[in-house]
Amino acid sequence: MKTVSVYVCAALAEIAGCFAFWAWLRLGKSAWWLLPGLTSLIAFAVLLTLVESAAAGRAYAPYGGIYIVASLAWLWTVEHARPDRWDITGAGVCLFGAAIILWGPRL
């Protein structure tokens, strides 16, 4: 369960950091938005190192599924745009794939 919590926190940190750049470049916000954005992206990178995995790629791959779901949650809660059925279906497929990578038996 620790791994899932780390992934969720990492996803929120990455999305918030990237959104700060989006706000600066696309929404005309002040360049000061970059300071918390960079801090958030550093936190994201550090958080992913906490995942119990012998290989970085195997830690990052299942994170992708969590990131997709977190992005849709951000879309809904922060940007007030409701995900449609294709968003939800795609996220479900990605989570299924992430679960296989994360919890699949290793030989």
Score class of each variant (00 low, 15 high):
residue 1 M to H: 01
residue 3 T to Y: 00
residue 4 V to Q: 00
residue 4 V to F: 01
residue 5 S to E: 10
residue 6 V to K: 00
residue 8 V to S: 01
residue 8 V to D: 01
residue 11 A to G: 00
residue 15 I to F: 03
residue 15 I to P: 04
residue 16 A to K: 01
residue 17 G to V: 03
residue 19 F to T: 07
residue 19 F to G: 03
residue 20 A to R: 01
residue 23 A to S: 06
residue 24 W to I: 05
residue 24 W to C: 10
residue 24 W to M: 05
residue 25 L to V: 12
residue 25 L to R: 15
residue 26 R to Y: 15
residue 26 R to F: 14
residue 27 L to V: 09
residue 27 L to T: 08
residue 30 S to Q: 02
residue 31 A to W: 12
residue 31 A to T: 11
residue 35 L to F: 05
residue 36 P to D: 00
residue 37 G to M: 08
residue 40 S to V: 01
residue 41 L to D: 13
residue 41 L to E: 09
residue 42 I to R: 09
residue 44 F to L: 10
residue 44 F to R: 08
residue 45 A to C: 14
residue 46 V to M: 08
residue 46 V to W: 15
residue 46 V to E: 08
residue 48 L to K: 11
residue 50 L to W: 14
residue 51 V to S: 03
residue 51 V to F: 01
residue 51 V to R: 02
residue 52 E to H: 13
residue 54 A to S: 14
residue 55 A to I: 08
residue 55 A to P: 01
residue 57 G to R: 03
residue 57 G to M: 00
residue 58 R to V: 03
residue 58 R to C: 00
residue 58 R to W: 03
residue 59 A to F: 01
residue 60 Y to A: 15
residue 60 Y to V: 15
residue 61 A to C: 05
residue 62 P to F: 06
residue 63 Y to M: 08
residue 63 Y to D: 09
residue 65 G to P: 07
residue 65 G to F: 02
residue 66 I to P: 05
residue 67 Y to L: 15
residue 67 Y to D: 05
residue 67 Y to P: 08
residue 69 V to K: 02
residue 69 V to H: 01
residue 70 A to K: 09
residue 71 S to H: 05
residue 73 A to G: 04
residue 73 A to S: 13
residue 74 W to G: 02
residue 74 W to C: 06
residue 75 L to H: 09
residue 75 L to F: 06
residue 75 L to K: 14
residue 76 W to D: 05
residue 78 V to K: 11
residue 78 V to D: 07
residue 78 V to Y: 11
residue 80 H to T: 10
residue 82 R to T: 15
residue 82 R to K: 12
residue 82 R to Q: 14
residue 82 R to M: 13
residue 82 R to L: 13
residue 82 R to Y: 10
residue 83 P to W: 04
residue 85 R to G: 09
residue 86 W to R: 14
residue 86 W to P: 07
residue 87 D to R: 07
residue 90 G to D: 11
residue 90 G to S: 07
residue 91 A to R: 11
residue 91 A to M: 07
residue 92 G to C: 08
residue 92 G to L: 13
residue 92 G to P: 04
residue 93 V to F: 07
residue 93 V to H: 03
residue 94 C to F: 10
residue 95 L to Y: 06
residue 95 L to R: 12
residue 99 A to S: 13
residue 104 G to L: 07
residue 104 G to I: 04
residue 106 R to L: 10
residue 107 L to S: 14
